[in-house]
Amino acid sequence: MKNLKIQKMVLALMMVFMVTSVFGATKTRAQQTKLITVKSTKSFNATVEGIKKGVANAGMMVLAEIDQDKILSMTGLTINAKSLFIGNPTVGKTAFSDNPAVGLAIPIRINVYEKHGVTYINYFEPSSQLGFFKGEKVKMIGQKMDKKVAMLTGMFSK
C-alpha cells in the first residue's frame, strides 16, 4: 500500500517535471527571437520606397513583396501594410549550403505598416532567428544581417 503511494508520488513529480520542462523550453525559445520596431519619420509610401532603394544600396535585393493592404482590401479592410523579403543569392547560397533548414528565416522579412497615421518598420532580428539553426556560417550571416538591417531601417528613424 505504502509502495503504491510512493509510486504515485514519483509519477506525479515526473509529470510536473516534464510539463515544466516543456514550457520552460518553449519560453527559452520564444525569448530568443527578438522583435525590433522602428518608428519612421517618413510617410508609408516614402518608407517602402526608401527601403527598396536602401536594400539595393546595401548589396541586397527585394526577392518578394507581399501587398498585405491590397490582399486585405478583398475582405473590405483598408490599411497600409507591406512585407518585403530581402536577401541576396550569394549569402543565401552560403547559408543554405551550411544548413538547408534556414529557409524558415531566409530571406529576411521586413514589415512596414501604418498605425494612427504613423509609419512603423518591424522585423525579427536576423541573428535571433538564424540562431535556431546549427552552422557557423549561418550564425555569422545572422550577425552580419543584423547590422545591415539595423542600418537600413535606422535611416528612417532620423
Binding site: 493592404d69 491590397k70 478583398m74
Partner: peptide
C-alpha cells in the same frame, strides 16, 4: 454590410492571374 467574408470575384481574379501576393 459585412455579411460576406470577402470579395469573391476579386479573389477569383488574383487567383486566375496568379498574383495573390501583389493583390488585385
Amino acid at each position: 454590410l459585412g455579411t460576406m467574408p470577402g470579395d469573391l470575384p476579386r479573389l477569383m481574379g488574383v487567383l486566375m492571374l496568379n498574383r495573390f501576393a501583389s493583390g488585385p
